[in-house]
Design a protein around this nucleic acid. Structure first.
Lengths: 284, 284
DNA sequence: AACGGAACTTCCGCCGGACGGAAGACCGTT
DNA sequence: AACGGTCTTCCGTCCGGCGGAAGTTCCGTT
């Protein structure tokens, strides 16, 4: 009963902020509705603490209690999420282009941005009679197994690429490429051709093609991808439409490389405070 | 210096969970990027506390630090928000119908659900050459001033309607109806006709028409609306397409009233635990 | 250059609120 | 009736969150 008795697997000292976040974190696409005690078990928090925090979250609108007593994510969180700058703003600009692409190709269309070692789909349009796919708005998948992810990885800093390649790369299908060397080759191909063409990486019988979208400083800020059933169409027949879409969105975002020069662009580069490293300090 | 010295406007005793949430709460569509001290000032938290909590939120992915040092909402929140059951699931089902409606009407299209006294847009499609409108995905607006809001309010429990009508109703334009009695009349009209037709309520020169969407238990779960410039088209020319869209989505959701009977539906009403009040306990 | 201000970061001692055990209410099942 | 499960409330203890203060960096101004 005295001190040092915590011989369990992990002491897991958590700050109170972490407790709050851990509750939100147990919700996922597989577990969208959870009872109080399920939340308690999954977070490892005591029932009492869970009870109190869940109620505070509910009072704020972060959680909602369904009629069966279980808790789900509240609309307040959806509302908040739309404020993510890389997210819905980009979507707003891209949506007309994506819709055109969908009508032209009858394929499933994705718009993805990088977050950690994953991509997150900030838009997902389903072809009316397209194959069912895993991709949904808000979905998160590893970079190495998605077309859009490969594109985003290919244009990431070398250092970050190696970090991802060193990490554990999950195998989704028999053909998922998880060998770092093989992936390096593919990344080089993507940089050379400007598009990623992948097959059966995340799901069987799916062919994915993706291209980079550039922002105001010509940096790659997102990727657009199309997915069709394997064998349904020649990949090369889709590339021109995809490339045009990517270029159109890039131009709408103000990417210099996608803007026809009508003179000498003399816009002076804006001063950036600090080292302009997008990952200033990751761990602790 | 002693006790009882807190003569400031509000003592504002906050729990630590509330502190965390208050930080998230200061982000809005007008303030999507905030510096640390801005967050501190707006929340009323000391700089030290803000610093610590913001870092914990960043480590978890709820916040992101931009290259200029300011903080924005992170994609983790967007990801979470897509798990809201009334949100993106509904959107998934409705999107094809909404797209058809957009092509048929060349209008701005909204899909909205109720949250508190407001509506939240869970989809917003812009006509290619439509009028610019305030509505954006994730946007929140008062029920009384939006077409979709009027529909949702009209089909809410009487008690809730009165609660909303009693509250302070903001005037957006000279024509915004804020008189409770006038609104009661309009709500009755909506229930009678099945559509809401409103003009210049939220913004000038905008005509909005909205219709209810029903779910599996025939309860109104959402509303679909179209917005066009005032005078651009007769409202009545838009109603049939809108009604068809609303009915189509309702049927896709399994609403009995929108499903052609092919026999006697004998599905027994599922037992609901508790009083089945959707707002079990609001305050505190 | 020197100064002043603002924003950000780190350190540390104190105290109040978060924590969890325990007990009670409320189901549905055996 | 007894049981197992979930949810809720109460309360005393203790420790981690809190904020003051000092230090650091980065501005723009004199």
């Amino acid at each position: 009963m005295t001190v040092l008795a915590a011989t369990s697997s992990e002491p897991t000292r958590l700050t109170s902020a972490q407790r709050v976040l851990s509750i939100l974190g147990v919700f996922s696409s597989e577990h969208m509705a959870l009872s109080l005690s399920e939340i308690s078990r999954r977070t490892g928090l005591t029932l009492t603490t869970t009870h109190r925090l869940v109620n505070e979250l509910r009072a704020w609108g972060a959680l909602r209690r369904e009629s069966d007593g279980r808790y789900t994510i509240g609309l307040r969180i959806l509302e908040l999420g739309t404020l993510a700058p890389q997210g819905l703003q980009l979507r707003e600009v891209a949506l007309p282009f994506l819709d055109d692409l969908r009508h032209a190709t009858h394929a499933n269309i994705h718009l993805a941005v990088a977050d950690g070692h994953d991509v997150i789909y900030i838009e997902s349009l389903r072809a009316r009679h397209g194959v069912p796919v895993l991709s949904r708005l808000g979905g998160r998948w590893p970079m190495h197994a998605t077309g859009t992810g490969l594109v985003l990885l290919a244009y990431s800093p070398q250092e970050f690429q190696e970090e991802v390649l060193r990490s554990k790369l999950r195998q989704f299908t028999a053909q998922t490429v998880t060998c770092p060397d093989a992936l390096r080759v593919r990344l080089a191909e993507v940089r050379k051709s400007g598009v990623a063409i992948t097959e059966n990486q995340l799901t069987q019988d799916a062919l994915a093609i993706a291209a980079p979208i550039r922002g105001p400083r010509d940096a790659v800020v997102a990727a657009v991808g199309v997915t069709v059933p394997t064998g349904s169409a020649s990949p090369h027949s889709l590339v021109p439409a995809l490339a045009a879409t990517a270029r159109g969105i890039s131009r709408a975002l103000g990417a210099p490389s996608a803007t026809p020069v009508s003179g000498v662009p003399v816009s002076s580069p804006p001063r950036i405070r600090g080292l302009n490293r997008s990952v200033p300090r990751q761990g602790r």
